[in-house]
Amino acid sequence: MSDFDFSVILDNLPFLIEGLGMTFLLTLLAIAGGLAIGTLLALARLSGFAPLAMVAAAYTNFFRSLPLILVIFWFYFLVPLILGRPVGGFYSVLVAFILFEAAYYSEIIRAGISSVRSGQVAAARALGMNYWQTMGDVVLPQAFRAMTPVLLTQAIILFQDTSLVYVVGLKDFLVSAELVANRDQRLVEMFTFAAAVYLVFCLLGSYAVRRLQQRFAT
């Protein structure tokens, strides 16, 4: 431990920050895409239209039964095959994350929607609101408020999970750290540093979640 070399971190800081940028970009895009598809899946599952609900349930259960790494491999292999040309790891990985996260988000959103009391739906219907108005103006705003802490927790998990792009070599924060570690033979420093950076961001995130929960509790 005595020869812990901080200079290797400082010297490579711009390179590492670039990797961190990729990690955040991937996280944000996957959250946005996952939320959008997840909301549609949740609405499909609660639609009361059996075939639609079954398809949505099958999708959710199927993706939740698979390891994320396998899903990443699947799309890394499939996306270029479907498009008929190589597209680079980023897009394949992004598709994998969005479709994978959508399954988890849809479960969270479904629980959130179910937590809104049925009387609220009856009241909106009694006022003459149609399905989309009832969902958009009455149910979803309440559901999303109730779900915010859980959605944020899922975002923290996703932030950590993006490190799995390591298996296809996409240059995110962890891969950048690993490249430096191997090139300069500074594995101890780089991996410890990487762990510390993830820890700080995730602790900040879970602190935010706790603050939100307290605010919603009062």
């Binding site: 950590q160 999970d161 962890l174 594995l187 991996f191 762990a195 995730c202």
Partner: peptide, 23 residues
């Protein structure tokens, strides 16, 4: 819990595999 939940599992693998034996 705070420590182990807030570091990506993959990074923990690397810590145990590459860093732990060194320290």
């Amino acid at each position: 819990v705070e420590l182990f939940r807030n570091v990506p599992l993959l990074v923990q693998f690397f810590l145990w595999f590459f860093v732990f034996p060194e320290i």
